[in-house]
Design a protein around this nucleic acid. Sequence first.
DNA 1: CGCTAGCTTGAGAGAGTTCAAGAATCGTGG
DNA 2: CCACGATTCTTGAACTCTCTCAAGCTAGCG
Lengths: 247, 247
Amino acid sequence: MTHPVAGGKTREGKGNCSDCALRQTLICSDVSRSDLATFHSWVDDLAFPPGTVLYHMEAPADGFYCLRSGTVKLVRYSMSGVARIVRILKGGDVAGLEAAFADTFAHTAVAVGEVRACRIPLSRFRHMMRDNPPLQRRLLEKSQQALAEVETWLAELAGGIGAAPARQRLARLLLSLRDGRSDRIHRFSIEDLGGMLGISMETASRILSDLTRQGFLEKCGSGRAERHFRADIAALEKIAVGEAVPA
Amino acid sequence: MTHPVAGGKTREGKGNCSDCALRQTLICSDVSRSDLATFHSWVDDLAFPPGTVLYHMEAPADGFYCLRSGTVKLVRYSMSGVARIVRILKGGDVAGLEAAFADTFAHTAVAVGEVRACRIPLSRFRHMMRDNPPLQRRLLEKSQQALAEVETWLAELAGGIGAAPARQRLARLLLSLRDGRSDRIHRFSIEDLGGMLGISMETASRILSDLTRQGFLEKCGSGRAERHFRADIAALEKIAVGEAVPA
DNA sequence: CGCTAGCTTGAGAGAGTTCAAGAATCGTGG
DNA sequence: CCACGATTCTTGAACTCTCTCAAGCTAGCG
């Protein structure tokens, strides 16, 4: 039975780790079956409606989150108050792991669509990690993966010299937001797209309209449900590397 | 006795881990004293002259490096061939750890000044890591630290909307390159400074000249030796947050 | 059916790029 | 020790991409 708790998030109850669809992927795959019983007794399974904040930057951190489903954006705010998105998390990713070493979060985590995540309290976690090498290895792997992502983000998506013009970078971003190998692309708000590339909402909108007019992109879905693009992948790939593409 | 080997790097001989000045800081601090004997038998202690490449992006990775002293820049080249610096490593940092999970390096590592580093072959390392939780924990910590650094880099130093104007960002960068709490700042080439901020060499130069003219910065040292700035930290700090500063 | 949040579009201004020389500086060899 | 060639850095001027500000527009939602 679902009931709402503070901040709009919803407690689904204690996690049922042994049934978790992500038991293979998620960090809990490194918890032995016998430990699992006690493990999930202190893991909260939470649901976050779109727009909810999982945690705030600078806030004292006493736990982190394993995403079961949905998408989360990690945001940093510049002194001028503009939001810059530094990373996108999907199911199977870990949010707020920095909590394990610093005592405050490095960014604000916001649910983009409906999100389900397990909250793992730090106190218990530290204890558990000490004598669980596979779990540590798994986390190191996740951390390295995140590192690789941000570096790519910085090198290929962020602006600056040598960086492609906005149109090219937007094409790259869209491709990286692609759903598997399909032609579906997760449709973020125009503002979020700007926040990821470091361009203004207006510029993002202009380019997007342009791409749509040329028939490379089609807006599908409406309301909160299933918003996405249907894209001409081949065309986007050409634009992404700077080739001129005929409509 | 030092003799040169391929690529200009120099083999100093097998590492003497028990004497290493960084035994407390570096990852080897998690190798037990008894293991140390066999450990350092397969660790190479290398010296790299300025400008040497430790490893290339995309190259097959079979080991990684622990920096003992000196500075290394991690570079990515955009399709247009422009170098973008994604991270700066100093003594105690680990370079190329991604090798442990991917089989190719994520960037090119270049020695900025004279660099000394221990090369740790992957095969041995994997074996060693398996049953050494403290070492894993240490590496996870390093990885998280690197992640935090890149994210800050992206949010505060990279260009784009909401980002500060180049002058402000350069001031921040210089402060982050400061040597401890002194007024000395490691002096990178004008091209490298551009590469870090994603601005052109010309823009970097203009701003730097300006800062020098205003007396906030003084170029010291010459040749390859000891190039550095002597800076008016207080002034730079004001510029970094966007305050107007009188000369 | 109207309201609000999100998106689109236009026009002008500015920060930073490019291209093109010129000035320093380095270290090398006579 | 000084002269020379090669980097590396500086400076100027024109140009361009993207930002800003300011309206309109659209579409979901109550």
